[in-house]
Every structure is written in structure tokens, then in C-alpha cells.
Design a protein around this nucleic acid. Structure first.
Length: 271
DNA sequence: CCCAAGACCTGGCGGC
DNA sequence: TGCCGCCAGGTCTTGG
């Protein structure tokens, strides 16, 4: 899925086409996502104007007068703007049509994503209330990571991917930011020094920012809100490169599994 | 509380 | 060409 950069790119891509517009119809062709799409969604949305779009971690939040539409893209989801006459594909599960004919289309082959309607403040929702800081917020710093990690035995990579620690860092960007920081992914989070966490916090922001600039990372099916793929893949140092040579030192990149996810690192550059 | 593993899905790929 | 197992951007749930 989309990690933070892909979510941000999606939000930026779709927002200009839908903010300020009124919903006239909602088509739910497949409600079986991670949790069922509410049956009342069409009735809830129709007639309301979309007031604002924002993002919290990997969740997209669209504010309406009466509540928020919350969308998560799971592993394979995408959201984009299509013309009203665009043919419907097998995995195009939901369409939200606005008064001027603009269609916001949700596509998700694996159906790990979710679409929910929130009546109360999003921050209080069970899925959002325990989330850690946004990586670009001031609260996310080396000192914060250092404090949060004391006594923790989990490998630092899994620590970094924990949404209670910081949101938005998934498998691609965890691998990449650890490489850029020279930190071995397998070391216990509690053993990483304050100084190294300082570097890591900086590199997390750096790698996410660069990826956003490039329109995200497209591995197979990600497309931004305008239907275009992202180009950050060309700048990946380690993700998907196990067994190949390190672009920095030439050593063979090592691939291991951590928490059922592929981890790739350079045994020379990351210690 | 902390941590590891299982669960949820479809589709693409490599190997035989 | 066909079938089989493995892998994939996430994260909630369960069990120790």
C-alpha cells in the first residue's frame, strides 16, 4: 500500500477536484472491505458539500458538515478522479459523484482498505486515538524516539513501523530511512543511541519528503489522485534490492524477514 | 504492557 | 500453457 507519501500524493491529487463540491450520488458495488462500508453511506453523503480534505497518518479524512468520511487504502487501494463515463473495473468498489459530474473512485483489489463515516471528532475514533505523531510534526524528533524506545527489545525497524510510535512509515520507507541513517534494522530499539535517533528522525523526514516530491513510489498498482504513478522507485537504495550490490559501498545487500516483512540492509553501511 | 504470529484478500511471478 | 507456492505498500486481533 500506500505509505504516507502515497497518501499525501493522493490527497493532493484529488482535493482540488472535489473540495467545495456537493455529493449527488454514491455507488457502493462491493461493501466487503476490511470492515463493511456502511449501508447508509449514500444517504449520509448525498446532498452534503465536501468542506476539506486532510490526512492523519495513512488515513484520509474528508470533512462534511455532518461528519467525516474516513478512508484507508490498505495494501492495494487507490483513490482517483475519473470522468463520469469511465468504464468500471473489477476492483472499482466505490464511486462518489459530485454535482458537476466529477467522480471520486475507490479501487482496491485486496480489500484491506476501509471506508467509514465518523460522526464524532476523528481524533477520538478508536482507529486514530492511539496514533503517534506525524513525522513532519515538531513532536517527532530524535529525543522523542530515544525516550519512547527505552527498554524496548523490538528491532528498531519494527519500532519505526509501529503507528503508536510514529505514523506513516511503512516497509519501503522504514528500510530506506534506516539505510540512510546507517542503522542496522535488526538492532533492539532500546539500544539505539540518542544521537543515532537524531539522524534517523531527520532521514525519515527526508526520505518521506523526497518521495512526496516524486509522486510516491509505484511498485505495481499505486496511482496518485490524477491517475499517474509515482517515480520514487528509482531512488530506492535497499527496498526490493536484496542480493544486489549496495549503491554506496558495493557490498551484497542482505535480506532477512522481520515480523513477516522483508528487510533489506547493507551489512557494511549499517551497523 | 510487550512481542510474535495469524488473520484478512487478490493477483503477479517464478519454478516445474 | 497450467498449476502451485510464495510474495506484496497494512494493521487489527489473538495468544503467550
Amino acid at each position: 500500500m500506500p505509505e504516507l507519501p502515497e497518501v499525501v500524493v493522493t490527497l493532493r491529487g484529488v482535493s482540488p477536484h472535489i473540495v467545495g463540491k456537493r455529493v449527488v450520488s454514491v455507488a457502493v458495488r462491493e461493501a466487503r472491505l476490511r470492515w463493511p462500508v456502511p449501508e447508509e453511506l449514500p444517504a449520509l453523503l448525498c446532498g452534503q458539500a465536501l468542506l476539506e480534505g486532510r490526512q492523519r497518518g495513512k488515513y484520509l479524512l474528508f470533512r462534511f458538515a455532518e461528519g467525516h468520511l474516513m478512508i484507508h487504502l490498505g495494501m492495494s487501494g487507490s483513490l482517483r478522479i475519473v470522468r463520469p463515463d469511465t468504464p468500471v473495473g473489477k476492483h472499482d468498489h466505490v464511486d462518489i459523484t459530485f454535482a458537476d459530474g466529477t467522480v471520486l473512485r475507490y479501487t482496491d483489489p485486496r480489500r484491506f482498505g476501509t471506508i467509514q463515516w465518523l460522526v464524532d471528532a476523528p481524533e477520538q475514533h478508536p482507529l486514530l486515538c492511539h496514533l503517534g505523531p506525524e513525522p513532519f510534526a515538531e513532536a517527532f524528533s530524535g529525543d522523542y524516539l530515544y525516550q519512547a524506545s527505552r527498554g524496548r527489545k523490538v528491532p528498531v525497524k519494527q519500532f519505526l513501523m509501529d503507528n503508536k510510535v510514529v505514523v506513516g512509515v511503512g516497509n519501503i520507507y522504514a528500510n530506506e530511512s534506516l539505510f540512510r541513517s546507517g542503522i542496522r534494522p535488526t538492532v533492539a530499539a532500546g539500544k539505539v543511541s540518542r544521537a543515532r535517533f537524531g539522524v534517523l528522525a531527520e532521514q525519515v523526514r527526508e526520505v518521506l519528503a523526497r518521495a512526496i516530491e516524486q509522486g510516491g513510489t509505484t511498485l505495481r498498482d499505486f496511482v496518485g489522485g490524477d491517475g499517474k504513478p509515482g517515480y520514487f522507485k528509482q531512488q530506492l537504495y535497499v527496498y526490493g534490492r536484496g542480493g544486489e550490490n549496495c549503491l554506496q559501498c558495493g557490498a551484497l545487500l542482505r535480506e532477512v524477514r522481520q515480523g513477516q516483512r522483508a528487510t533489506v540492509y547493507c551489512p557494511g553501511c549499517q551497523r
